[in-house]
Amino acid sequence: MTEKTNHSPEPRVASPELLSRRAFLEKLMFVLSAIGTVAVSIPLLGYVLSPIIKRDPQVWRSVGKVDDFKVGTVTAVAFVDSQTLPWDGLTNKTGAWLRRDSDTEFIAFALTCTHLGCPVRWMGDAQLFMCPCHGGVYYKDGSVAAGPPPHPLPRFDVRINGDQVEIGTAPLMIQRG
């Protein structure tokens, strides 16, 4: 009577045909896995990287009436970003320092220091923008007055539309190395 087991009773002789069959099966597994991985990766990577590729269109957002801003003053303004999601909450906003230069001229500076992106503050009496993080200072025209910032303060587009001051939305101003 032969004992029933799951194993073969004796090891098979590894004939040349069997060896080449095994080598083929190994290759087959690698190739199949590679094809599967690539096939599934394309849509997944597309999903993950879509925020990088997508570019939000510029829209104009009103930040107040022209008459609300006195010539020579710098005011903190906030506006809603170009693209929003229902769960953004407060985070759909961007701020800017709006400076009225003359009756018809406005400049909107980004809040982001060009050193590492900390939010700069306008010191009205000193007529300077100061960064709280690493001591960057800018003049009222946004040019670097002191400290580590490599570039002047970035600007948003501004226009006057009727009696409204409008700022053109823009991506976060990331300084390139």
Partner: peptide
């Protein structure tokens, strides 16, 4: 852009 999840911060 990848870090902030798009052009600007948000949801």
């Amino acid at each position: 852009k990848f870090i902030i999840g798009g052009d600007t911060e948000g949801g």
